[in-house]
């Protein structure tokens, strides 16, 4: 009974982490595609996105099966280290944003930057080609981060297909929402999602890194939930502390 609940909570955390991380990256990719589509050409934007998705699919087909045959302890140590770095980067940014020290949304800036790049396109680069390249780069680079998260979390937790399904669900949800809200992507509560993903990635990074170093976690997989709780509380304390500091120092730039 205890074992079953530990396994199911582990699966819930895995699915949640992959879904949220994928959704955040996909929102960023969608912003670029929408900017290219609205200002330049929907055809080039969609073609660039389709080629990027096909390239990512080929990459997964190539790398995915090889990862499964990698020694699990070494894989977990590498994955743990990557997730710890990745998660701490996300958490750091989310903490600074929630205290008002950084702008809360990337989407408006990404949209404006993409539009500016297209409007300054040189005559040697045809506009349609530039639109295609921008859409391709946006989808491929953001998608590559999703692939890394799916492959590393999925293989380490021995639930690769479940992780892939969670990412696919995020793609469908973000795609549908994107079609509906189109240019209002900055309304998505990006920072809250980024903070949650940061907590989950750091928790997984600690857990897998520890397993790779042959640590025997007290309570086994249940320790993952404890780690999530510890990092969530610590993040909340950091945010509260910085808010107090920011309020007491009016000279700090917004």
């Amino acid at each position: 009974m205890v074992m079953a609940s530990a396994v199911s909570s582990n699966v819930v955390v895995l699915v949640g982490a992959v879904f949220l991380a994928s959704a955040v990256e996909m929102v960023e990719a969608l912003t670029i595609v929408v900017a290219v589509g609205y200002t330049q050409s929907w055809r080039s934007a969609l073609e660039g996105s389709a080629v990027a998705l096909l390239s990512l699919g080929a990459l997964v087909a190539l790398v995915g099966p090889a990862l499964v045959h990698f020694p699990i302890d070494v894989l977990r140590l590498i994955v743990g280290a990557v997730l710890l770095i990745f998660g701490m980067q996300w958490l750091r940014k989310a903490i600074l944003r929630s205290t008002g020290l950084k702008a809360k949304h990337d989407e408006d800036a990404i949209y404006q930057q993409t539009v500016a790049t297209l409007s300054t396109g040189t005559s040697s680069t045809p506009r349609d080609r530039m639109a295609f390249v921008l859409a391709f780069k946006g989808v491929f680079l953001e998608g590559l981060e999703v692939v890394i998260i799916v492959l590393t979390l999925g293989t380490s937790a021995r639930h690769l297909s479940l992780a892939a399904l969670a990412a696919l669900a995020a793609l469908v949800v973000v795609g549908v929402v994107g079609v509906i809200v189109a240019r209002q992507l900055s309304k998505v509560p990006e920072n809250a999602m980024k903070m949650t993903v940061g907590v989950l990635l750091v928790s997984y990074g600690t857990f897998f890194g520890g397993e790779g170093l042959k640590i025997r976690w007290p309570g086994g997989d249940t320790m993952l939930i404890v780690l999530v709780a510890i990092y969530a509380v610590v993040t909340w304390l950091f945010v509260a502390r910085l808010r107090v500091l920011a309020a007491s120092e009016p000279a700090v730039a917004p």
Binding site: G205, V234, F238, L242
Partner: peptide
């Protein structure tokens, strides 16, 4: 492992 990770995050923030 978690203590040092929290310390590293705190130092970076």
């Amino acid at each position: 492992l978690p203590t040092l990770s929290v310390a590293a995050l705190g130092a970076s923030v």
